[in-house]
Structure formats: C-alpha cells, structure tokens
Simulated scan of single mutants.
Amino acid sequence: NNMEPRNQTSVSKFLLLGLTEDPELQLLLFSLFLAVYMVTVLGNLLIVLTVSSDSYLHTPMYFFVSNLSITDICLSTTTIPKTLVNIKMQNQSITYTGCLNQIFFVQVFCGFENFLLAAMAYDRHVAICHPLKYTVVMNPCFCSLLVLLSLFISMVDALLHSLMVLQLSFCTDLEIPQFFCELPQVLKLACSSTLINNILIYFVACILGGVPLSGIIFSYTRIISSVLRMPSADGKHKAFATCGSHLSVVSLFYGTSVGVYLSSAFALSPKKTAVASVMYIVIPQMMNPFIYSLRNRDIKGSLRKLIGRMPSI
C-alpha cells in the first residue's frame, strides 16, 4: 500500500470485509446466504406466479403485492450473489463500477419498496374507508401510474447519489466493513469532502422516507377509526385481516431500517453494523412472501389451485 492519496481515476476496486474473517464461519455464512437467496427468489416468484395465474387476484392490492415481490428479488440479487462469489473465491474485492452499481440498485429498490408500501396502505384506506368509490379510484391506469412514478422517482434519486459518488476522490484505504457497497460506508472512505453527499442523504431520507411513512400512518389512522365504527364484529375482523399482512411487512421494513440507522448513528463496531444491515437488506425480502402467503386467505387458496394444476412429478 503506497501512502500518497490517489484520485478517483485510479481507484479500481474496493474491499468488502463482509461479516466475518473466520474461515469456518465463512462456510456457514455461505450456506446461510445461499439458502436465504434461494428462499427469497423462489418464495417471491411463487407469489408473482400465483397472482398472475389467478384472475380473482387481479386487483390493485395484489398488483402491488406482485410488484413488491419483484422488487424483493431484485434487491436481493443486487447484494447476495456478489457476497456468495466473494466467499467462495475467498476474495473480498469488488470493482469500482461494481460498487457504484450496487449503490445505485440498492437505492432504487429500497426507495421503490418504500413507495409501494405507501401505495398499498392507500389502497387499503380506499377499500375500507370509501368502499363504494374503490373501483373508480383504484383503477388499473391509476395503479400503473403510481408504480411507474414511484420507480421513476427512486431511479432519479439513485442516479443523483451515484453521480455524487463519482465526484469523490478516494484514498488508499478502501476497506468497506460490510458485505455490500453501502452508500454511507463508501462515503466514509473518501478523501474529498462528503458534506454535500451527506446533506443529500439526509434530505432525501426525510423526503423519500418521510412522505411514504406519513402516508402509511395517515392511512392506518383513518382505517382504524373507520373499522372501530363498524357495527359487526365480523366486519371488523375481516377489515383487519386484509391489513394484517401489509402491516407486518411495513413494520418489518421500517423497523429493521430504523434499527440499522440507529446502530450506525451510535457507532457500534463495524461488524455489528454489518450484521444489522443484513436485517434490512436481506431478511424482509425473504419474509415478505411468507407473510403474504401465511396471513392471506386469497393467496393461500390460489396457491393451492396453482399447485393443483401442476402435473404431478
């Protein structure tokens, strides 16, 4: 390692230190990550297949659910395969371009997931508080527009962050205490000032995190007050049942993100931060299909139909 600082043109790679350097633990980690990835991809694919194959599920709510599943597959694919390759090859490096790609796609899919959860909360809000207007408000055109707009905003945001990273110059120490290129960790390695980058991160987090979250909280306040006014216990139960799975996914997504943010704010050891980030970048993506298929009667029924139609091997 030569000590003089190098500018951004000569940075060809970063080192991802991952979660552990213990060779025995690495093997365990490899198996765990592989299992999690397989379950995530297969579980979410099954949800997408189920929703698309059953016309009964061609409703706004399941349109958003299948978009969420596709996003979960993409988010996991951005980080996990590279980790698996690195553990297998016993090599920690990731190219500069690879690192930028990871930053870009993690930002896109996390942002998009944020918006999707808000769209789903709005969908439940309209369904429970304004049932007669539901088909008019949540028409296919409006739903597709919501998804495209969310994706567009997430991509613009991710592009902004990535272009800002391109402006930075990096020093000789290029070790990221993480299993993927996480934006704040990459910024810590820069030799040049990252003030604007950090301002942008906080600003965007407040807007792109705050607005959807406020929308979710607003929708649920209205839903709860609406449900509590329902005369029949059966109606109440039914209304809460349709929201249950979405609420579980929301709490998992925001709970883990806030947990990770707090753990990095209070400067835990880098290893603990890396383990915490598994919680928000890997676990929710794997859990979502389970939450939706186990908590949801419609999806359970359609899954049975789908499996019933498959030729017995």
Rank of each mutant, 00 (worst) to 15 (best):
P5G: 09
R6G: 10
T9Y: 03
S10L: 13
S10M: 13
S12K: 14
L15T: 15
L19K: 00
T20Q: 09
T20V: 05
E21G: 13
P23T: 04
L27S: 15
L29W: 12
N44D: 09
N44K: 03
I47V: 06
I47W: 11
V48E: 12
S52R: 09
S55W: 02
Y56G: 09
P60S: 09
F63I: 08
V65M: 10
S66H: 09
L68A: 02
I70W: 13
I70E: 05
C74D: 11
S76I: 08
S76T: 03
L84R: 02
V85A: 11
N86V: 04
K88D: 14
I94Q: 02
T97L: 12
T97M: 06
L100C: 05
N101H: 05
I103Y: 07
V106W: 01
F112S: 11
E113S: 11
L116K: 08
A119H: 12
A121S: 12
R124G: 02
H125I: 00
V126F: 03
A127F: 01
A127D: 08
P131G: 04
T135C: 12
V136A: 12
N139H: 08
C141G: 15
C141F: 15
C143V: 06
L145K: 00
L145E: 09
L146N: 15
L148S: 15
L148A: 15
S150V: 05
S150F: 05
L151S: 15
F152R: 00
F152Q: 13
D157I: 09
D157Y: 10
L160N: 13
L163Q: 03
M164Q: 14
L166A: 15
L174D: 03
L174H: 06
E175C: 10
P177N: 08
Q178N: 00
F179I: 10
F180T: 00
P184N: 09
Q185V: 11
V186Y: 05
V186W: 03
L187V: 07
L187Y: 04
K188V: 06
A190L: 07
A190Q: 10
S192Y: 02
S192W: 00
N198P: 01
I201W: 01
F203T: 15
F203E: 14
V204L: 11
A205C: 13
A205L: 08
I207A: 11
I207Y: 01
G209R: 03
G215C: 08
I216E: 00
R222N: 14
I223Q: 01
S225P: 04
S226R: 05
V227N: 02
L228Y: 15
K236M: 06
A239L: 07
A239M: 04
F240H: 08
A241I: 10
C243W: 00
G244C: 06
L247C: 08
S248K: 11
V249C: 12
V249I: 12
V249Y: 04
V250L: 11
S251C: 12
S251I: 03
G255N: 04
S257G: 07
S257D: 00
G259I: 02
Y261D: 13
L262P: 08
S263C: 14
S263V: 14
F266C: 13
L268C: 10
A276P: 13
A276I: 02
S277Q: 10
V278C: 11
M279L: 14
M279H: 11
Q285K: 10
M287E: 02
M287L: 15
F290I: 08
I291M: 13
Y292V: 04
S293H: 08
L294M: 01
N296R: 02
R297W: 08
R304V: 07
P311K: 12
S312M: 14
